[in-house]
Design a protein around this nucleic acid. Structure first.
Lengths: 195, 195
DNA sequence: TGTACATCAGTGAACGCGCGTTCACTGATGTAC
DNA sequence: TGTACATCAGTGAACGCGCGTTCACTGATGTAC
């Protein structure tokens, strides 16, 4: 594992990390085999020891970006553990959008073309399952009729994802900070009241 | 304007149309100067008579895609003219998502990185102003308190845009048709109730 | 514990590709007199 | 109405670039005896 050694030791992860770095500015299109290899201080060919092809590398970077989102959201949700379920719903939404705004490239990468399936999103610990858990709490607290629980996660996710996308790439890119805050508040209020 | 003439006659539009064709499958990344020129039966250089550079061409294609979305939504809204305002809200949302599913490449192009500003979206006749008009009707009909009108358009837009994006590129790509219908219905219900 | 050898993880050179963009140019068009 | 000439909208060749991917290879590592 020494830096001097011929063998890298953890090239696979180094390449993913490099891909993450590349994508952090402009998103998934910046993730390329050669660029990642260069950043990792290695020949392009070496990358093919660890990834089948370019799409395979991108998929791995995407997975990592998705994890980073989950981690960020998770931290906020934990911090709001003491509050009421509806406050936690708010917290989760805010954390989600905040991540997108703080790390636009990673967010775009996580949801770019070819993103994972719903099954991937259902894996324990993703932002999606965290949202599901909070909705379950809402049901338990009697704040959400259980007959309305189905698909509620996807509906809420849609609202918050669309908000993030409009703010990043869409027509809301150049919005003033207080207007940004206002849209976020309004959208989360809609979700809360509408579920 | 004859096809035989040396001069094309309307090369600018032909290039935009070619760009639209290119983007229709995979989206904005497929729009390139050389490919569009090729499709228009013209030398790459010729494109530079009509567009400053590649980004300029892409921007023009994006604008056209945005218009196509507006046209599609507008048609549906007109068809629902007879209904109640809340039905029209539903119609607008459905038309919007339907367009995204029918023309994924154009939809991605319309909202891809570098998309227009909110001011562009406020131009008369866009999908956004159509939505605004319906919300105004809701207020007039007493179904939406006027103090809740501000930002309601953006919140509704977020929900429907996020839904479209999750269905196109995100984790909901492989959803079964009836599940797709269910998410759409659930999300629109959330918007309707939550505004 | 030492050594022979298989395997593993890299190198370096090369391929063909499509791209954006620029150059000097020429044929087509339109306009002034 | 005819013609000279300016301008316009293309051509064709070329540039340099970064890309994905493959090839034959070699140095490093680990394992069986």
């Amino acid at each position: 594992m020494s830096k001097e050694s011929y063998h890298h030791g953890d090239l696979r992860n180094a390449l993913i990390e490099a891909g993450l770095q590349l994508s952090s500015k402009s998103g998934p299109t910046a993730v390329r085999v050669r660029a990642a290899a260069r950043a990792a201080g290695v020949t392009p060919t070496a990358a093919y020891r660890h990834f089948h092809d370019a799409a395979d590398l991108l998929a791995a970077v995407r997975r990592r970006a998705f994890e980073l989102l989950a981690t960020a959201v998770s931290a906020e949700v934990d911090a709001s553990r003491v509050g009421a379920p509806s406050d936690r719903l708010e917290a989760i939404g805010r954390a989600y959008v905040a991540f997108a705004l703080a790390e636009p490239g990673w967010y775009r990468t996580a949801f770019g073309p070819g993103a994972g399936s719903l099954e991937d999103a259902r894996v324990q610990g993703t932002a999606f399952t965290l949202l599901g858990a909070v909705l379950d709490e809402l049901v338990a607290a009697g704040e959400l009729p259980s007959k309305r629980r189905p698909m509620a996660d996807l509906a809420a996710w849609s609202a918050v994802h669309g908000l993030a996308m409009l703010l990043l790439d869409g027509p809301l890119t150049a919005l003033a900070p207080d207007a940004v805050e206002a849209v976020i508040a309004r959208t989360l209020a809609m979700v809360r009241a509408g579920l």
